[in-house]
């Protein structure tokens, strides 16, 4: 019952986010600040993880191809499929739930604890629009992060495969081009946009409605990470079934 209540409250929050908008002159600066914090602030870790995970995917694929009958270009093919279909959009989003999600929950939660949200409401400001809308807007650039993740994941795979002697550069690139379906990219970016919305709103929900003090801010950050990850995994399954199933 508690969970249904929370889900209902979440959707009411989403509705409120889009009502009574803040003046554009103020909102535009808030959006730019959030783009800097949420999107550009995450690029470093994304670049690092994507490159090395792409490399590991290529090595694992190569090492599991025992039969000499299997063509070497399969390493490139498997790396492309893994990175574009799952690693870049889903795995990356779960990492972002930890990085961006906990940042959102703790920053909004601290504002709740220190009565800054009450101060906004007393002034007649729609606190949800002021705090959450810029985050949703900034996360519209999340597909840009994911496209970088896709590129670097494949590049990491190429580097590991060529430098590790598992395939030649030509074989790997052949594998990348074989049986390429543009719809898979569409599927990946469809997921990404939905995950971006989840990454901005579920942590905001946990921060905005938290009660208590500093300890509860920490607890809310953990809870928000868990629920954001759960939502991403469930929605990933549903979208995959709908678009590819």
């Amino acid at each position: 019952m508690k969970y249904f209540e929370a889900i209902g409250k979440y959707f009411l929050m989403i509705r409120e986010v889009f009502l009574r908008p803040t003046k554009w002159s103020i909102m535009k600066n808030l959006i730019l600040k959030e783009i800097d914090d949420l999107v550009f602030g995450s690029l470093g870790i994304m670049i690092f993880i994507s490159f090395f995970v792409g490399g590991v995917v290529a090595i694992q694929t190569a090492l599991n191809m025992d039969s000499p009958l299997l063509p070497k270009y399969l390493v490139g093919f498997a790396t492309r499929q893994s990175v574009i279909l799952e690693f870049a959009p889903t795995f990356t989003s779960i990492i972002m739930a930890g990085k961006v999600g906990s940042y959102i929950t703790s920053s909004i939660g601290t504002m709740r604890v220190t009565e800054q949200i009450d101060a906004l409401e007393v002034m007649g400001v729609n606190a949800l629009n002021y705090l959450v809308f810029p985050k949703i807007s900034a996360m519209l650039l999340y597909p840009f992060v994911i496209s970088i993740s896709m590129f670097l994941g494949i590049f990491g795979g190429w580097a590991a495969s060529v430098m590790g002697g598992f395939s030649t550069s030509v074989e790997f690139i052949d594998g990348l081009q074989i049986d390429f379906k543009p719809f898979h990219v569409f599927y990946a970016f469809t997921k990404t946009i939905i995950f971006a919305f989840i990454l901005a709103t579920i942590p905001s929900f946990h921060g905005f409605y938290m009660k208590g003090g500093a300890l509860e801010v920490g607890k809310a950050s953990t809870t928000s990470f868990v629920w954001t990850s759960v939502a991403i995994i469930i929605i990933n399954y549903i979208i995959t079934q709908m678009l590819l199933g």
């Binding site: 220190t114 800054q116 009450d118 101060a119 007393v122 002034m123 007649g124």
Partner: peptide
């Protein structure tokens, strides 16, 4: 209600300044 709120000033216990 919104108009009334704009006529209110509040000093919170912990000041509630935007840090």
């Amino acid at each position: 209600k919104r108009e009334l709120r704009q006529q209110m000033g509040m000093v919170f216990q912990g000041s509630a300044l935007f840090d």
